[in-house]
Design a binder for these strands. Structure first.
Lengths: 216, 216
DNA sequence: CATATACGGTACTCACCAGTTTCGGATATT
DNA sequence: AATATCCGAAACTGGTGAGTACCGTATATG
């Protein structure tokens, strides 16, 4: 009897776009919800994740989530797309004067930790990648490209200062670290630690670019 | 966890535990079922795959599958473990006299095609990798290691004939091709074609090993 | 203050799927 | 031939989770 759900009445004459009335949606909570989604995603993967888990983690109601995102897939895609904290501050990047110095300077506990988190998220989203082609672009822009572009910039600077040849295949080389770190974490289940990263720099990248060990 | 093939079971009637009677299980169909499972796995991923799909694909009854594998996870693990057809015939590997020649000789349409199939299977199993630690070893033995060991052997031969230095980090370099191919297929969604593989060989591996282009 | 909406929470519907059971028919052993 | 087991097919069970509806309450708008 008490039907309060009748939105087809009292439509204002000003049918411009959306004459909002009543309480407004609290968008300040969106980042908390998206962060909760990323946490659950990294822990359980897309298929293991439930909307209730995310809602509970964010201390929000399930209906609140569906008021803002139309589906689980929508929420996850938005969460991945909005993980902006990870974009490297281009101003604060190291500039040590040598390519190896720059790359070694990027090896910090914080970077490693954040990298592993991103890889966990990528693993959680992997099963979805095949179904939603647009998601691949989102993952690429949010996770892959930021890190690759840093390596690319380091190498371009090295070319500019004459440290390495301009013939180097920078596009391919810039992806080696990401590729091997992903493979090592997701497939081999081994840690991506400082030793491993150094073995890539000194065992692959530097030799491939014709840079000899400086010790001698 | 099943024997791969047991067509000729010459078990004496006086077996210790089970004196079998009646019709015997037709194990010649096991490979067909496992292949069907791999197909569905590659197409839909582990979570999207249903037992009914596999049964229908193999033209078998669902009960038949459960008579042979105790669970969906069991079936998938066995399917991955038994994809033995892919193990390279060590006798038939190329031996061209140069490392680059050997590696380029491995680039064949058939190899590329089979590699992409394996990667699709790996992607489908990815979400399961976090839950079942034993699966990582199975995937490693069935997909990763066979290809890496081929590259390792090529490089060891190159060391033996003095083509490359014995100081090269063969362990790391042997995984570059697999890592980058996996990354390119699963994350970047770009094809692993001949051109890409050549760019790895000539833009990364050869320079890293100090081998100069032979043309000049 | 009155109203319309958002909020957290809970209960509900509906579909899907792992795993089990059942059935009629086929097949190998005795 | 009799029997025990397998087979494919299909019905059934039980649990789970996406998405919806509703409740009492909170809060911004007018």
């Amino acid at each position: 009897m008490t039907q309060i759900d009748a939105p087809d009445i009292t439509v204002p004459a000003t049918t411009d776009t959306a004459p909002k009335l009543g309480r407004k949606r609290d968008h300040t909570r969106d980042p908390e919800i998206l962060d909760a989604a990323l946490e659950v995603l990294a822990e359980t993967g897309y298929d293991g994740m439930t909307i209730d888990m995310v809602a509970a983690r964010a201390k929000a109601g399930k209906a609140t989530l569906y008021r803002r995102w139309s589906s689980k897939a929508d929420l996850v895609i938005d969460a991945v797309a909005c993980m902006k904290q990870s974009h490297f501050d281009l101003e604060a990047l190291p500039d040590t004067g040598t390519l190896r110095g720059d790359m070694v300077a990027m090896i910090k506990p914080h970077s490693i930790e954040e990298g592993e988190r991103k890889l966990q998220i990528m693993a959680g989203v992997m099963s979805m990648l095949s179904r939603d082609p647009g998601l691949a672009d989102v993952v690429n822009a949010a996770i892959v490209e930021p890190r690759a572009s840093v390596n690319r910039m380091f190498m371009q600077r090295a070319v500019a200062r004459g440290e390495i040849s301009a013939d180097a295949d920078i596009e391919t080389l810039a992806m080696i670290t990401s590729s091997m770190a992903a493979y090592r974490t997701l497939v081999l289940k081994k840690p991506v630690d400082k030793e491993f990263l150094l073995s890539i720099i000194d065992g692959v990248l530097m030799p491939a670019l014709g840079i000899r060990p400086t010790a001698g």
